[in-house]
């Protein structure tokens, strides 16, 4: 029992921040994300005996999080229609330029269609490879690659970054 408790505490300490952040990007609301994170870890605690490979712990938690989201919130959460309405926590960093940049990019991410946003969330916050994302979303690896490519392309287009301009020259 003590070993199981220690294992659970290690999971919470290691992954709760990233799981919460993923929940925010799924729920679009910090309060709902808090609930979802709590439900995810409670479910993880109840089935912690099923976790055989510590290296796969984060992926295991992500799967639970997505299932819990589908079970608890799917019907309640409106999809992003207007990215101005997105409820996300305020950046608390001291640099106003960085805060403004982060806010701009968050709005752009929130404005992505879910099929582009979700693989990006799994890659950037979850640290999953294209193959792992494909397994998680039950789509092909090539479809994941296309979605990730387009997601970044759309963000660059919205932000007007240099690569977006280069692409018009180099990749046309």
């Amino acid at each position: 029992m003590a070993k199981k408790q220690a294992q659970f505490e290690a999971l919470v300490r290691s992954y709760s921040s990233d799981l919460y952040r993923m929940a925010v990007w799924l729920c679009h609301d910090p309060a709902l994300a808090d609930d979802l994170t709590q439900e995810t870890f409670l479910r993880a605690w109840r089935s912690i005996d099923q976790l055989r490979d510590e290296k796969a712990a984060k992926r295991w938690l992500i799967t639970i999080l997505r299932r819990e989201f589908a079970r608890l919130f799917e019907r309640k959460v409106p999809d992003f229609v207007d990215s101005e309405d997105v409820v996300l926590p305020d950046e608390r960093g001291p640099d106003p330029v960085e805060r403004a940049e982060a806010r701009l990019l968050r709005r752009a991410i929130a404005g992505l269609e879910p099929k582009y946003r979700e693989p990006l969330v799994l890659q950037v916050l979850g640290g999953l490879s294209c193959q792992e994302i494909a397994d998680e979303l039950k789509i092909s690896r090539s479809a994941v690659m296309t979605q990730l490519f387009r997601a970044r392309q759309k963000l660059r287009d919205r932000l007007g970054t240099e690569e977006s301009d280069d692409r018009a020259i180099d990749m046309s």
Partner: peptide
């Protein structure tokens, strides 16, 4: 930086 929203 953008994805790393503040954690409570």
């Amino acid at each position: 930086r953008a994805f790393n929203v503040p954690v409570p």
